[in-house]
Simulated scan of single mutants.
Amino acid sequence: MDASSETFEARLAATAREVEAALGVLLSPSALNGEITRPERLRSAMHYASLNGGKRLRPFLVIEAASLLGGDRDAALRVGAALECVHCYSLVHDDLPAMDDDNLRRGKPTVHIAYDEATAILAGDSLLTYAFDIIAAPETKLPDAAKLALTLALARAAGIGGMAGGQALDLAAEKQAPDEQGIVTLQAMKTGALIRFACEAGAIVAGASPEDRTRLRQFGERIGLAFQLADDILDLTSDAATMGKATGKDASRGKGTLVAMHGMAWAEAKLAEQVREAEALLAPYAERSIVLAQAARFIAGRKS
């Protein structure tokens, strides 16, 4: 590992600690103005779901994209925390017996195992709802127009035409394997949509131009595909202890992946291509974009 990657990973870890501290405050037992009370078992399950490890890559991308364009870090941190709530809700629900039926997440029992199925469903519901609360709250120091844009973009990325729709396609893929375009669409929705939003959200936080917002969105699309390709490669080459979750499940369920369809050599070449395209999109920002370029390479080369 060279010095630059060490520096990047230290920056990623430091940001993860900031995000976790913010989530810890947001998920405290104290009810907010307008809330009646926070049932302790539900709050505890939400806390467990969102503070049980993870790289916090999506909030990191929000913060670094905002930084690239001169956005306020505190506002970006809160938007990143909101996005992490959506991501963690999706993991809780994906792990349920009716969905992917997983018992392990980030090396620990999944929420429905650690608590119970009903509590897991409610914890996911509450995390999703809370994400929009965090963005709209007065503590998020952004103009109303920016909050509206973030709310709309996150809803589109998380809902029927984004992540939730992608999970529906993923479940359908167990019964009928999709063709190549079907796999690309599924992955762009289930995995890519929130990564794309993370990068675009940074531009929204910064009040950037439409051109910058489009460029960061396109960057997010490239690294979203890279993330999924790396995930599919790891699903075939890694183990549960390294990944912190079950591996080999797509193959065992007959789900098609681009790696299975085209082979490892093709996947690795495609992964490198996505990184090159992502870096090319950052070229106009010159040295200011070093951290985001490192993030693209980190996503492609990660081991878990």
Rank of each mutant, 00 (worst) to 15 (best):
S90Q: 02
T247P: 12
K55C: 10
A65H: 12
T191Q: 10
A49C: 06
Y115M: 05
T214I: 09
M264W: 00
A173N: 15
G166I: 05
W266V: 03
A269G: 08
D231L: 11
L282D: 09
D74K: 00
P109A: 00
T247M: 12
L150A: 03
Y48M: 01
F298L: 02
A193Y: 04
V111Q: 05
K141F: 00
T129I: 08
E40F: 14
D232W: 10
L96H: 06
D133W: 02
A203R: 01
L12S: 08
D125M: 05
A10H: 09
I183N: 13
P143R: 07
A13Y: 12
D170T: 12
R56P: 10
R217D: 14
G256Y: 07
Q228N: 13
P143F: 03
E6F: 05
G220T: 07
N103C: 06
I183Y: 13
A188Y: 13
T237Q: 15
S209N: 08
Y285L: 05
V291S: 05
R196G: 08
L142T: 00
A45S: 02
L68V: 10
R288L: 06
I290M: 04
V25C: 08
S252I: 12
A208G: 08
E277M: 05
L91A: 02
M189I: 09
D94N: 02
L12M: 12
A280I: 09
G54E: 07
D235Q: 08
A98L: 08
D133H: 07
A81Y: 14
D102S: 07
D100I: 06
L236Q: 10
A269S: 09
L122H: 04
F60I: 07
R17H: 14
Q294T: 01
I36H: 14
R297W: 09
E174T: 15
C199Q: 02
A137Y: 00
G71C: 09
V111E: 03
A168C: 13
R58V: 05
L258D: 07
G254N: 08
L225V: 14
T15Q: 13
S44V: 07
S5L: 00
A260K: 13
W266T: 04
L216F: 08
L104M: 06
A21W: 13
A272G: 02
S126K: 11
M163P: 01
Y48C: 04
V62H: 09
L282M: 11
Q274W: 02
L281K: 00
A208C: 05
A272K: 06
E84R: 06
M99Y: 01
G248L: 13
R73G: 02
V25R: 14
P210I: 12
R297D: 06
S5A: 03
P138D: 00
L42N: 11
D94I: 01
P97H: 01
G202E: 00
G53T: 09
E64T: 10
